[in-house]
Amino acid sequence: MKKVIIGLVLTLSVVIVGAIYLYQSAHAPYAQAEDETITFLAERTDLDQVEDFYWYNGEVTTFTVRGFNEAEEEKLYMVQPEGGAIVTFDAAEIVTEQEARRVTREAREPKRILNAKVGLMNDTPIWEVTYKNENDRLGYYIIHLKTGEWLRTIDNI
């Protein structure tokens, strides 16, 4: 009986260590992109405090950081890895993540909202809200970052 318990404990330990390793390996590119983007922005802008990081993969990959500058003004900093162009928005000029989620809930009545990301679509700043519909199918509701105006819906994926 002792050998069985020791075997189970060892097996469980290997499974837990393996799961942690897999998670860290899968999360490493995201963490690296976040760290590199924050460092890049800290060197080239007045970014002082980071609140959120968004990674958008559309036509163009965009990394976005929401945070505060040295004057404690809330800003949104968008970076395109290709070329390193930086676009900055004052938080007062844009639709918040909560508002983007609310607009999506009202328009699409999703079963569950999975996440919201900031990005660029045809050089237009957007919120892309990902959700599951009533059939558990994936959907994207895309609105303009500044106006909250609907731009595109992709449903039943």
Rank of each mutant, 00 (worst) to 15 (best):
E59W: 01
E59V: 09
V60L: 14
V60Y: 05
T62K: 01
T64F: 00
V65C: 06
V65P: 02
F68K: 14
F68R: 14
A71E: 14
A71G: 08
A71Y: 01
E72T: 12
E73L: 13
E74D: 06
K75C: 04
K75V: 03
K75M: 12
K75P: 04
K75S: 04
K75Q: 11
K75R: 12
L76Q: 04
L76D: 01
L76T: 09
Y77S: 10
M78S: 12
V79E: 12
Q80H: 09
G83Q: 07
G84D: 11
G84W: 04
A85F: 09
A85H: 13
I86S: 11
I86W: 04
T88L: 10
T88V: 15
D90Q: 12
D90T: 11
A91T: 05
A92F: 05
E93L: 07
I94D: 03
I94M: 06
V95S: 06
V95P: 07
E97I: 01
E97R: 08
E97F: 00
Q98T: 05
A100I: 01
A100P: 08
R101N: 10
R102Q: 14
T104Q: 02
T104M: 03
R105P: 02
R105N: 10
E106S: 04
E106D: 09
E106W: 00
A107S: 11
A107C: 02
A107L: 03
R108M: 13
R108L: 10
R108I: 12
R108E: 13
E109S: 13
E109T: 15
K111Y: 07
K111D: 14
I113H: 07
L114W: 02
L114F: 07
L114Y: 06
L114I: 15
N115P: 11
N115L: 14
N115F: 14
V118C: 01
G119T: 03
G119R: 00
G119E: 00
G119H: 00
L120C: 09
L120V: 08
L120N: 07
M121I: 10
N122S: 15
N122C: 06
T124M: 11
P125H: 03
P125C: 08
P125L: 06
P125F: 01
P125V: 08
I126N: 01
I126K: 02
I126P: 05
W127Q: 04
W127L: 04
W127D: 04
E128Y: 00
T130K: 03
T130L: 09
K132L: 15
N133Y: 07
N133I: 12
E134C: 08
D136S: 15
D136Q: 14
L138I: 13
G139S: 08
Y141P: 07
Y141K: 03
Y141I: 07
I143Y: 00
H144K: 10
H144Y: 02
L145H: 05
L145S: 12
L145A: 13
L145W: 01
K146W: 00
G148D: 09
E149I: 12
W150V: 12
W150T: 13
L151N: 05
